[in-house]
Computed example of a mutant assay.
Amino acid sequence: MTRRNHTLVIYAHPYSGSFNHAVLESVTSALERKKRSYDVIDLYADEFDPRYTAEELALFSEGGTTDPLVEKYQGLLDKATRLIIIAPIWWSELPGVVKGFMDKVMKQNWAYDSTNIGVRGRLTHIKQVLVLTTSTAPTWFLKRMAGNSVGSVFLGTIVRQLGMKGRKWVNYGQVAKGGHARRAKHLEKVARLAVKS
């Protein structure tokens, strides 16, 4: 099946006054200026529950769900060719709501198959994954001293196993430092990345 280029933005921050929200606005504005097709999943605005219930877990082996948001999100992922994930770094990794999104939405027999030699991803139609984060810690600390959770585990293992390509992580470290000029420069950067093919 041939898919037209379509970006799915997954946003995970509860506060509209955050710098993460400014990143979201910069990304979506850039997509609109270039007339690029896109959707946004706002996990907090949707009140997405990242927890598995016993009923949901009972459907694990068949890839079923009791959560209508999971079905909605899978439909959006089905038509996406690019993902942009916007979230803060909390305690050296992505927020729990993002992990819960991966846990509940990336179902067996939908997002991947379990084989004798491991997981075989089905989401190969997603050709680019861009993770845009902010952190109190400097980026070098997250990469060298805190386990590189985003680069190594999230992108390097989870996303790779799902079959997605073109994985990139851009972090805005020491978010409270640098003032308006530094923030404006970063927003220009993420706007360029949002429309880069």
Rank of each mutant, 00 (worst) to 15 (best):
P68E: 00
I10E: 04
V119F: 11
Y38W: 14
H125D: 00
E188M: 01
L123M: 15
G163P: 03
A181N: 11
A111E: 04
G166S: 08
M1T: 13
P50L: 10
S18E: 07
S37D: 15
V27D: 09
L94D: 01
Q161T: 14
R4H: 13
S149P: 08
H21T: 08
G151M: 05
T81V: 02
Q174H: 04
W169L: 08
S152W: 12
V175A: 08
R3Q: 11
L142K: 07
R33K: 15
S26P: 02
Y15N: 13
A111L: 08
R82G: 06
M102G: 00
I86F: 05
S152V: 08
Q174W: 05
A30I: 14
A191R: 06
I41F: 13
V97M: 05
S114H: 10
L142E: 02
A194V: 06
R36G: 07
S92G: 01
W90Q: 11
D49M: 08
H6E: 12
T115W: 08
D78K: 14
A45H: 12
G63I: 11
W140S: 08
E32K: 13
S16W: 00
P68N: 02
K72I: 00
F19H: 13
D67A: 07
A22G: 06
D42G: 03
V70L: 09
Q74M: 05
K35W: 06
L77N: 01
P68F: 02
K35T: 10
K185S: 14
V119S: 07
G147P: 02
F141W: 12
L132D: 02
L130F: 13
L57H: 13
L187T: 05
S29P: 03
S197L: 08
A58V: 02
G118D: 13
V23C: 11
F101A: 01
Q108I: 15
G121H: 06
A80K: 09
E93C: 14
R122Q: 13
L155P: 01
R167G: 06
Q161I: 06
S152I: 07
Q108V: 15
V27A: 09
M145R: 12
W140A: 09
R4W: 03
V97S: 04
E56F: 04
K72D: 10
I41D: 13
I117E: 15
Y38G: 09
N20R: 05
G63K: 11
I126W: 03
Q174E: 14
A137W: 12
P50M: 10
L57W: 15
W169A: 10
A87Y: 04
K104M: 06
K143S: 08
T124I: 07
F154E: 03
A194N: 04
K79H: 09
K35E: 13
G151L: 07
F60K: 12
V150D: 06
